[in-house]
C-alpha cells in the first residue's frame, strides 16, 4: 500500500497531463457530435426525401465502422489524400463523427416523441418548419433526450481512450507509457482506472438528475 502511495505521488503529475487531453478530446468530440447529430436528425425528420435518405445512409455507414478504424483512416489515410491532421484534430474529428450517429438517433427519437398535435398547432398559427422545430418541438424534445445524452457523455469519456491508438497522449496512453517503462502495472493502471471513474462520477450524477427531472413531467 505504501508503495502505491509513493507511485501515486510520482506518477500523478504525468497522468494529470493525460487527463487534460482526455478532457479536451471528450469535450471537443462531444460538441462536434452534438452539432452533427442534430443536423443528421433534422435532415432525417425534414420530410424531404433526399435529405432523409442521405442522413439514414450516413448514420448506418458511421455505425458500421469501428471507431478505431475511423481514427486510423483520418490520421493515416487522409494525409495521402492531401489532408494532414494533427493527432488531436483527428481524434476529435473521428470520435465526433462516430458519435454523431448515436446522437442523431437519440435526437430523432426525442423529436418523433413529440405529439403531432404540437406541430399542427404551430403550423396553424403560421409557423414554418424551422420555426416549429426551434420554438415548439426542440424545447420539448430536450427533456426526453437528456438522460440518454448523459449516458452518451459517459461512453464518450471512456472512448476518448481510443485516441491513444493514434498517439494522442491522453490518460490511457500516458498510463501505458509509464507502465511499460517502470513495470509498475498494478499501481499505474489502478490509478488510471480510478481517474476515469472520478471523471465519470459527476456525469453519472448528472444523468441521475436528468432522469429524475424527466420522470416528474
Amino acid at each position: 500500500m505504501q508503495a502505491f502511495w509513493r507511485d501515486t505521488v510520482e506518477f500523478l503529475p504525468i497522468l494529470m497531463s493525460g487527463v487534460a487531453l482526455t478532457i479536451i478530446v471528450t469535450i471537443g468530440s462531444l460538441l462536434l457530435s452534438t452539432t452533427l447529430g442534430l443536423v443528421w436528425a433534422l435532415m432525417r425528420v425534414s420530410g424531404v426525401g433526399v435529405l432523409t435518405g442521405f442522413s439514414a445512409g450516413l448514420i448506418n455507414v458511421i455505425r458500421g465502422i469501428p471507431i478505431i478504424v475511423l481514427l486510423f483512416y483520418l490520421y493515416f489515410v487522409m494525409p495521402e489524400l492531401g489532408l494532414t491532421l494533427t493527432a488531436l484534430q483527428a481524434a476529435i474529428l473521428g470520435l465526433g463523427i462516430a458519435y454523431s450517429a448515436y446522437q442523431a438517433e437519440n435526437f430523432r427519437a426525442g423529436i418523433e416523441a413529440i405529439d403531432k398535435g404540437q406541430i399542427e398547432a404551430a403550423q396553424a398559427i403560421g409557423m414554418g418548419w424551422w420555426q416549429t422545430m426551434r420554438r415548439v418541438v426542440l424545447p420539448q424534445a430536450v427533456k426526453i433526450v437528456l438522460p440518454p445524452y448523459g449516458n452518451i457523455m459517459i461512453m464518450m469519456l471512456k472512448d476518448s481512450s481510443q485516441a491513444s491508438t493514434i498517439t494522442v497522449a491522453e490518460l490511457a496512453l500516458q498510463g501505458k507509457l509509464i507502465a511499460s517503462s517502470t513495470f509498475k502495472n498494478t499501481s499505474v493502471f489502478t490509478l488510471v482506472a480510478l481517474m476515469y471513474l472520478t471523471m465519470s462520477i459527476p456525469l453519472i450524477l448528472l444523468v441521475r438528475h436528468f432522469e429524475k427531472r424527466a420522470g416528474q413531467k
Binding site: G117, Q118, E120, A121, A122, A124, V136, Q140
Partner: peptide
Amino acid sequence: MVFQRFNLF
C-alpha cells in the same frame, strides 16, 4: 384553428 385536444404548448 382550435383543436379537439387543445394542443397548447
